[in-house]
Nucleic acid binder design. Structure first.
Lengths: 200, 200
DNA sequence: GTACATTGACTGAAAGTTTAGTCAGCAGGC
DNA sequence: GCCTGCTGACTAAACTTTCAGTCAATGTAC
């Protein structure tokens, strides 16, 4: 991949984060990437092609920065609870790259209501994420029934999306969003724990 | 308000639900409402004006159909818990008008990330809604601290928005979404109850 | 009760603007 | 000489916005 092609993709993420999927103008994108409009078409054929590739690119990037949670940075092995919190809270960082990625991803999610083409990619990513969270929860509450664990994971991820939308549109301060989510994790773990006890 | 003005607003809700905010073409809207494009500008000045009024209209409509929960239909007074559940679950109905309203509202919410003009109205509606839910919760758990009640209300409404987005894009079946939300209500009430006890 | 003036809702075509997509051609490595 | 990467002016279509003017209703002076 040439430097310019990569520049177009990172530019696409930036423009989508700034103006939304439908607000993405090919001329803006070219300007953002510092190339001509012609080059955009040379590499990506047409507008839907740009969007498709941008999606994959943004998804990859999100995987990469959430993966750093388990990275070799931790000197002593982090406990499961911290791992779970990080997996979820990493979405709430006021770092330009993360915020940009979150915004673009949220926009794609919202856009998928009107564009069936996007749903497949989105559904797969969403399911994988629920499974990851459910994995952490199951490890923390080994006695809780599997159904309840999955439901808790679905609630936590859906809550995260709802909070993220409010944060990104400035309706909810970042720290408040993080606090609400942390509390929700505590509440859900508490509930799973009590379910486990009852089953004993 | 003239019939045609109202027709334009209901048409706007329908077109936004079908094509999204950015997919709304003034010509489409005029056709949907059965009027000329000129009339749209006569009543609403410009495209942003259409969106602003449509948002208010859709918000009002949502208030109206969630308000029926407390209506005179109930022979014996419904308990607070049922009232709370209905307030939240009424958003999840597969009735065309409700679905259309939810879709359009969700779209405007998502769009507000990129359009500061829409945020004020949205913030007010969101705050009122959190307050309503908090009111029900406070009545159910009179001993819980006010801060915890508000936080629970914020979580429940944010969760609802997250679940709603998934439902509307076909990623989550309606009944599943309802079940998850009902459970979340139970969990949050349980937590508020235990907080009340500790304070005694 | 009828001629005249005024107003608000409304139309449709035309003007103006924005946007996706094309194309002829340049530069440089092989 | 030819392939790949690249340019930017250009076109056609899509879209928003304006505007001159129609029409029905309402008032009002005689």
């Amino acid at each position: 991949m040439t430097d310019n092609k990569r520049a177009i993709l990172t530019g696409a993420a930036r423009v989508i984060a700034r103006q939304g999927v439908r607000g993405l103008r090919v001329a803006d994108l070219a300007a953002e990437a510092g190339v001509s409009t012609g080059l955009v078409y040379y590499h990506f054929k047409d507008r839907p092609g740009i969007l498709r590739h941008a999606l994959a690119f943004i998804g990859d990037r999100a995987d990469r920065y959430t993966a750093t949670a388990q990275g070799p940075t931790a000197a002593h092995p982090p406990d499961r609870r911290t791992l779970l919190e990080q997996t979820l809270l990493l979405e709430f960082q006021d770092v330009p790259e993360v915020r940009e990625n979150s915004t673009a991803w949220g926009e794609l999610r919202a856009h998928s209501v009107f564009d069936p083409e996007l749903r497949e990619e989105l559904a797969a990513a969403g399911a994988a994420w629920v499974a990851e969270v459910a994995g952490h929860l199951a490890a923390l509450c080994p006695d809780a029934p599997a159904g309840a664990v999955t439901a808790a994971a679905e609630r936590l991820t859906a809550l995260l999306e709802g909070l993220s939308a409010r944060w990104l549109s400035g309706l909810l301060p970042l720290e408040h969003a993080r606090g609400l989510l942390r509390e929700a994790i505590r509440v859900e773990i508490g509930r799973l724990g009590s379910l486990g006890e009852r089953i004993d």
